[in-house]
Amino acid sequence: MKHEPGRLPPRRLDSAQGPVPSAPSRLLMDPLLGPIVAACVVALASALLVVLAQGAIRAVVALLAHSLSIAALYALLAAGLVAVGQLLIYSGAIVVVFLFVVALLPPGGRELHSQPRRVVTGIAVGAALLAALYTGLGPTISAQAQLLAGPAGSAVPSGLGSVAGIGHELFDADKLLVPFELTAPLLLVAIIGSVALWRRQGTP
């Protein structure tokens, strides 16, 4: 894996310390709720900006903001290592590559305006997708409060998201070692692909 886990991820403020309160009170007592909501709002707003921005440069900048806010969200969700990975791979590599490509493009990647009809149908279909997702998730969302507020689901283990824990998952042959190794052929395809496409480009 590319990101060497050099330092510990920021420890999350554990909300599960002490006796488990009853469900309604816990709902109100999630201490990270505020930051999480804030990160979600930023993520959503920046995603919207990616979709709507005229010109590719602005979209890339919005994508960078989006990526950062997602990383913050990961950190808030007790996933420090993933947050670091997100920073390194997404913000650090992918978004930058996007920026390069956009900068390389002749007229700065200017985009043609979409016709109103296209915009309307696009938004309608997007809304339809959201509605379809809601059919699947709606009951879960409403049930989640009950489910996770109970004693069993509520306790977030204190070691969650530690480098050691994730390392065990990734390098245990019975867990995720196989998929981890299987990314090798995938990356090989990507490498061959980028080189081959470059060579194809380079020839008349």
Binding site: V125, G126, A128, L129, A131, A132, L133, T135, G136
Partner: peptide, 9 residues
């Protein structure tokens, strides 16, 4: 995308 939504529903 519409197909995805329809299949999902």
């Amino acid at each position: 995308v519409l197909g995805l939504a329809v299949i999902l529903v």
